[in-house]
């Protein structure tokens, strides 16, 4: 088992997001097949429950891939998904999972190379997180977090 199978679930919006992933096929690049992509009409369709479901089903990392601010085809305000994203990050923290396992990536359409770079960096980051988690399994941090939130 040379490389660990780091499963990444990407929620990609059908427009700018999907075009980045589709564009990779025409370039001479490849990315790990442990990256799975779920297409949605718009990132704003995603709510916390769906993201957490992805983690429940075993995703090591979840990437939200969508358009840059002001580029939504449907004119949906980008605040909504950013709010969901931050909400889930704090939920992950409460659950004792590392926040950085959820990322929001906003790219221009057709950015094949950038997407591959992002996903590869993400996988590397998660490898580090997984390694560090195994070491610091009983640390003082979780208790501290709960104290902060209860204020």
């Amino acid at each position: 088992m040379a490389t660990p199978y780091i499963e990444i679930l990407v929620f990609a919006c059908n427009w700018d997001g999907w075009s980045c992933i589709d564009a990779t096929a025409n370039l001479e690049v490849s990315y790990p097949a442990s990256v799975k992509v779920v297409r949605v009409s718009c990132l704003s369709r995603i709510h916390a429950g769906l993201i957490l479901k992805a983690f429940e089903f075993g995703a090591d990392g979840v990437m939200l891939l969508g358009c840059e601010p002001g580029r939504c085809l449907f004119n949906v305000n980008g605040e909504y998904i950013i709010n969901e994203y931050e909400k889930v990050r704090s939920i992950l923290k409460i659950l004792g999972m590392q926040q950085d396992r959820l990322v929001l990536v906003q790219l221009p359409a057709f950015s094949g190379y950038e997407f591959v770079m992002q996903v590869k960096n993400f996988i590397e980051k998660i490898e580090q997180l997984s390694a560090s988690k195994r070491v610091k399994i009983t640390g003082p941090e979780p208790v501290q977090d709960i104290a902060v939130l209860s204020q």
């Binding site: 679930l9 779920v38 369709r45 089903f57 075993g58």
Partner: peptide, 17 residues
Amino acid sequence: ESDKQLVHTLQSMLHRG
């Protein structure tokens, strides 16, 4: 594109699912 369909999709795509 219901929640149910999305959850089924997630379940099929991920190993624990």
